[in-house]
Every structure is written in structure tokens, then in C-alpha cells.
Simulated assay, not measured.
Amino acid sequence: MRGARLSGVLVPAPENDIEFRSVTKSYGSVVAVSDIDLAVPKGAFVALLGPSGCGKTTCLRMIGGFEQPTAGEVLIAGAPMTGVPAYRRPVNMVFQHYALFPHFDVEANVAYGLKQMRPRLDAGEIRRRVGEALEMVRLGTYAKRRIHEMSGGQQQRVALARALVNKPSVLLLDEPLAALDKKLRTAMQIELQTLQRDLGITFVLVTHDQEEALSMSDLVCVMSAGRIRQIAPPQAVYDHPADLFVADFVGKTNRIAAVLEAGGALRLPDGRVIAGPPRAGLSGGPVTVALRPEAIRLSRGALSGAGAAGFEGIVTHRIFLGSAAEYSLAVPGLGHLLVTAERGGAGDAPLIEPGERVVLSFDPAAAHVFPT
């Protein structure tokens, strides 16, 4: 563990780069962030995920020093940041629209922050560090290029180089990929992941794009109405959502009303009872079953006879996605369900057409159950 030596005693470095301790932020009578605790480990890639107005950008701005908490405390590398202005914090920020200077070339944009440092750096040191930063984002030959001559992805990398050239402990990313098309956004997600691993510094990403959060981060912090609903690795958030909001917001989810009975059995709206594993923390009564579309198995035809396992439905809509197809089904007693079916390849069975009758089934253990 890294540390500092004070009066001959080695003081351990803090395990977390960022901490929120009972932080609240209000704007008059509007509470944007409400009494949250958050710990971001050193070197982590954390995504703050949630709908517009959930408080994620306010949290980012409090880390960056653009806002101060109404109550509670924000710490960076173990040091309280109360009253510390943005330019004195060991963080840098990449904004959604990059905020590049259009009248500067690439080199001048990246060098801008270095030229504001005190004591002043000599010109040779500035050129060296700018060159390193541009090489880091694979723009080493673009130093003299004008900003308006750069593509969207290249401008995003210029903004990254400018943020990284000061060697911050924490990099803040405020929806930096929102303005890019899907293909370029996917490429930049991979570049950001690679860059974060190579540098080993803490990245904090704000996004409302669940795919972006799940694919890039080590930890996903799901927020709603100024509170943290769940913070966990991406797979845990998707596979084991903490509540119905998380299940609904992260990924696609079917909701089915049911009654939880003894031993984990679920009584469905059509009166059918299906066995299931015991549900910790639930004592029985009305519940909502959250079922992922890919957890439902689908086949053509009708049930073969009385007592046959499964449910009958009618395909009402189909969306072809290339590697998969999404089907909307009308299922008596269960309502409308969304089912995702992966395709095996060019020789796979033909797609199911709207109007066809199908049989669907699912493993009760794959269902998430929440109190209604």
C-alpha cells in the first residue's frame, strides 16, 4: 500500500479515491441528492447510472468542485474537499460537448491547462507532456490540426488528452459519448476502457445509457430521485437487482403480478401455481415478478394436452435485431410479454411471424420477486 511518512511514521494511503459521507445537495426547496454514502476504490472505473434528474451529474459536479454539498462531506484521496475550489482538486473533467477552443489547434488545446500551472512550466516540458498525452490517445500526428478539421471521435480524444495531461488522480466523464453515432460510441467505449487500465487512475462516468455503464465500468451505481438504489459490479446489478426500479431500469424486464405462497411458490394471475426457490426477506403476499426477456424459452405451436408445462401466447409484434429477434406476445393470464430469442446462424429456423401461436416457459429460479 502506498503511503506518506509524517514525523517518521508511515501513514497508509486511503483505499478510496472518492468518498461521500452523508452528502445532501439542495437547490432551495429542491433536493437533488439526499443523504448518500459512496466509496470509489482507487483505480476503479465507476458509472453513475440513472434517469435524467436522478442526481448523478450533481454528484459529479460535487467531486469536481463545481458544486458544494449542502450537508455532509466529499473526500478525495482521503482529504476533505469542503471549500476547495475546482482548480485545486486532483481531478479533471471531460464534458459532454468537449468544450474545446475552436480557434486553437490540437496542441494548444491540450497545452492550455499546463500553461495555467504555477510555478510555470518551461516550454520544453509543456511540449513533452503534450506529446505524451497525444500519443496516449493515438493523436500524435495531429498536433497542428485545427479542431474544426477533426471528426467527433477525434475531438473526444483531444478532450481526453487535455484532461489527462495534468496527470489527475481522478478523471470525471460527463456523458462524453452522447454526441457520437452508435458505431463510433462502441469504439470509444473500448478505447476508454483500455486507457483506464493502462493509466490505472480512477474514472467516474455519468451516463443514462445502461449499455454504456454495463460494458465499461467495474462498478455501476444506479441512482433514482437523489438516492443510490444499488452499487455493485455490472453483472451483479443485472443478474441480482436490488429492487424493482433497478430491475426495470437496467436492461429490459417483464413485470408479472403474482402472490408469493409458502416455500417460494408463485400463484399467477391465471390461478396457476409454479414452484420456486425460497425468497429471502419475503414472507408472502402480493408480489411483482420481474423476468428478463432472454430468460423465456419460446417454441412454435400449442400446448400438447391438459396439464402440459408452459403457457400459450400469440406473437403480436416482432423486431429483427440481426443476431437476435425480439417478440411481443399476448399471453392470457399474464398480459403482454417481451421475449428475446438468439439466432443460431444463417441456417437457423425461420423467424416467427406476428399472428403465430407459440408456447413459452421459464425457470422460476430466473425470476426476481419483489414486494408489490
Rank of each mutant, 00 (worst) to 15 (best):
K252I: 12
R272K: 09
E132Y: 06
I126R: 06
M93R: 05
S34P: 06
A367N: 05
K25Q: 11
D243Y: 00
A13T: 15
I352R: 02
P85C: 05
Y327T: 02
E132F: 04
I274M: 05
L291C: 10
F370Y: 13
D239R: 06
G307S: 09
T82P: 01
Q154H: 14
L6F: 15
R146K: 06
A77D: 13
P233S: 08
V9M: 04
G55T: 01
A39E: 14
P69W: 00
A346I: 09
F95Q: 09
E132W: 03
I36T: 11
G78M: 02
Y27P: 07
D174Y: 08
L38H: 03
A111P: 06
A13F: 11
S26C: 13
G124F: 02
S304H: 13
A295F: 09
R5M: 12
V287Q: 10
A99H: 09
G53M: 06
M188C: 01
A32R: 04
R5V: 15
A330W: 10
K144C: 03
I36C: 11
V165C: 03
M93A: 05
E312F: 12
V222F: 07
A187F: 14
E326V: 13
H208E: 06
G3V: 08
G355F: 08
S22E: 06
A213N: 03
P286F: 07
A325R: 12
M216A: 00
A295L: 10
S304A: 15
R297Y: 11
G65P: 13
D35E: 08
V23F: 03
L360D: 07
L49T: 09
R21F: 15
L164F: 13
A346E: 10
F45Q: 05
V91N: 07
M93W: 02
A247N: 03
K183E: 11
I256F: 01
L177T: 06
G153W: 07
E212F: 08
R146S: 08
I319G: 10
G28V: 10
H317F: 15
L334I: 10
A159I: 02
G28Y: 06
G276L: 07
D122G: 08
V33E: 01
A367W: 02
R127M: 02
P234L: 03
R185H: 10
L164Y: 09
L160Q: 01
R227L: 08
R185T: 08
P364I: 15
M150Y: 04
V204S: 00
P119G: 10
V84T: 14
V358I: 13
V9R: 13
P233C: 14
K42H: 15
A44Q: 04
V259F: 14
L180K: 07
G153D: 03
L139K: 02
R162W: 12
F45I: 12
T340M: 13
N254Y: 00
K252A: 14
A367S: 02
P332F: 08
I314G: 10
F66M: 05
G131T: 09
D35K: 02
V250I: 09
A32P: 01
P102G: 11
N92R: 07
R88H: 12
G72F: 04
R145C: 02
P12C: 10
G43V: 07
R118N: 13
V9T: 11
G281E: 09
G65L: 12
E149W: 03
I296A: 01
A325F: 12
L298N: 13
A306W: 10
P364N: 12
L184T: 04
A86E: 12
R197P: 13
V287N: 09
